[in-house]
Design a protein around this nucleic acid. Sequence first.
DNA 1: TCCCAATATGATAATAATTGTTAAAAATAT
DNA 2: ATATTTTTAACAATTATTATCATATTGGGA
Lengths: 135, 135
Amino acid sequence: MNRTVQREAILAELRASRKHPTAEEIYTVLRSRMPQLSLGTVYRNLEQMSQAGVIRKLETAGKCKRFDGDLSLHHHIRCVECGAVEDVEPAVFNEVDAALARLLPQLKCIDYNLELNGRCRRCRSKGDGGMQREN
Amino acid sequence: MNRTVQREAILAELRASRKHPTAEEIYTVLRSRMPQLSLGTVYRNLEQMSQAGVIRKLETAGKCKRFDGDLSLHHHIRCVECGAVEDVEPAVFNEVDAALARLLPQLKCIDYNLELNGRCRRCRSKGDGGMQREN
DNA sequence: TCCCAATATGATAATAATTGTTAAAAATAT
DNA sequence: ATATTTTTAACAATTATTATCATATTGGGA
C-alpha cells in the first residue's frame, strides 16, 4: 500500500471526525479541499484500510457503511430514527466485555462487534416518544 | 439480506412489543417517525425475516397474521475468511445477555446486535492456523 | 537523478438490493 | 353473491457500492 495524498487525507479526516462518517460524508468534506477527488477513491481506500486493520468498518444497519478510525475496544449506539452512530462510554460495558472475553477463546473468535439500537438524545427530545412502550 | 433502516425498525418494533403485532399495527406505529414507510415494505420484510428464521409467523386464527420477534435472540459467528455465518448455542450467552438486558433500559435502547468474528472450523482446518483478521 | 514496474487515481459504467407505489389477488365478512 | 379487508405481486426509481480502464503517481534501484 503506497502513500498517497488521497489516502492520507481520508485517514486524517476519519480520525478527526467523531461521527463515524460514511464514504460519502468523507468525500464531501474532502472535496472542498481536493476538488478532483473521486468518490470511488474514497470507497476504495476505506475498504483497503479496513482490510489492513488500520480502521474499522462498522456493521451498522442503514443504507451506508460507516467507518471508525478509533481501533480501541468500544461499542456503538445507533439511532433508529436519524441513523447517527455514537460511541458509548466503554466502562458501561465492563461486565459484558468481561463475559465476552471469557467466551472468545472458547468459541475460537478473534473479536466481536456490539451495536445497540435506540434513539439518540436529539431525536428523543424533539420526538413524540413513539418508540417507548407503556405496556 | 442487507440491513436497512426499514428492516431494522420493523424488527426492533416487533421485539419491543409484547403483543405479537400484525403488519398493519407495526406499520401504524412506525409511520409516526417514518412517514414515507410503505405498508408493502412491512409485509415484505416480515415475510423475509420469518423465512430467514429471524422472527416467527404465528399460526393463529383471525383475519390477520401475527408475528413474534421473541424468537431466540440468538447471536452468530461470522467467519472472516469465507464469510459463512453460524449460530451459536444461545445458552453460551446467558451471562452476556443478562448483563445487556440490565443495560438496555439504562441506555434507553430497544435492541442490540452482537456479532462475533472468527474463523469457522472448515477454514481453520484447511488454513494455516494463523489468526489474521481480514475483516 | 532518471527510469520503470507496481500501484493508485478519476471518471464513468455496471451491479445489486431495496424501496414506495399501485394494482391484482386472496381471504374474510356481509 | 357482493363488498371489504388483508396480502402479494409487479415495477419503476433510487441509491450505495463495486468494477473497469486509461492515465497518473509512487517508491526503489541503476
